[in-house]
Simulated scan of single mutants.
Amino acid sequence: MSTNAGLREDGDDDLDRSIRDLLLLMPQIMGRVKRLPVPPELAGMELTPRHLSLLSLLLFDGSMTVNELAGRLGVAPTTASLMIGDLSRKGILTRRENEADRRQKIVDIADAHRGAIETWLAPGARAWRRVLAPLSAAERRLFVTTMMAYHEAAEQV
């Protein structure tokens, strides 16, 4: 597919063509993500895309509380707590008390699985780095904001 999908030869954007191109592209992207091989250490643990999002946050942003994870994932704290409990029972995550507030738990990726998770997420991170690096900070922000807006709009349909 052309990197100028949706652009006519005269440079004017054709909205319907762009929408068509994106509707064709999105299933291909999702299919590619679903085909990422799960590392042997994580095989059979029934990880879902939500788990992948949670693991990505912890990998890139470091340990955080259940409420912080819930906020960043856009889910209720109860939902985040259930996912964290599931991954903790499988040994993928660790939970420890927050020294500043013992009622809170700090969640992180277990050292035993950090390498496998990094390996699993690396191809996607490299691909995003390759396509986003040439863009200006404003262009990257616009792209990310547009993807987030699409996600929100698609939920309302």
Rank of each mutant, 00 (worst) to 15 (best):
G11V: 06
L93Y: 03
V131C: 09
A43Y: 01
L87N: 01
L7Y: 05
L7C: 05
P27E: 03
S2I: 05
S2H: 11
V107L: 04
A80Q: 01
M45R: 03
L73C: 07
P39Q: 04
L15Q: 13
I29M: 14
G124H: 00
S2Q: 10
L82N: 09
L57T: 01
I109Y: 01
P40D: 08
A112S: 08
N98F: 03
S18W: 02
N4L: 11
I29T: 13
R32A: 09
E97F: 07
V144R: 03
R102A: 08
M30R: 15
E139K: 08
T3V: 13
M147S: 13
A5F: 09
A43V: 10
A116S: 14
R95H: 00
R102K: 14
P37L: 09
W128K: 11
P39T: 04
N67R: 15
H113A: 04
R140A: 03
V131L: 10
L24S: 11
V75W: 02
L52I: 10
S18Y: 01
D21R: 11
M45C: 07
A112W: 02
L132Q: 10
M45T: 05
D108G: 05
F143A: 08
H113G: 02
E155Q: 12
T65M: 02
D13W: 13
L42Q: 03
T119Y: 01
M1K: 13
L87W: 00
T146S: 12
L24I: 10
I106E: 00
P27K: 02
V66H: 00
G11F: 04
R96L: 06
R20N: 14
I19F: 11
R32T: 10
A127T: 05
G124C: 06
L47T: 05
D111W: 07
G115D: 12
V33C: 09
S18M: 14
F60Q: 13
L36G: 00
R126D: 08
H51F: 06
I109K: 03
E68Q: 15
M148Y: 08
R8H: 12
A149H: 11
K90N: 09
P123I: 01
L24V: 09
L15E: 11
D10W: 04
E152N: 07
P123C: 05
D108C: 00
G31A: 12
Q156R: 13
T79H: 13
M30A: 14
I92V: 15
P134M: 05
E155M: 12
L69D: 00
A127Q: 02
A149S: 13
A5P: 04
T65R: 06
E9S: 14
A122E: 07
A154K: 11
K90S: 10
T3E: 12
I117L: 03
S63Q: 05
N67K: 15
V157S: 04
T78Q: 14
G115P: 00
L58K: 02
R129D: 06
Q156A: 09
M45L: 14
Q156D: 11
E118S: 08
Y150K: 08
G62E: 04
A76E: 11
L22K: 11
M64S: 10
S88A: 14
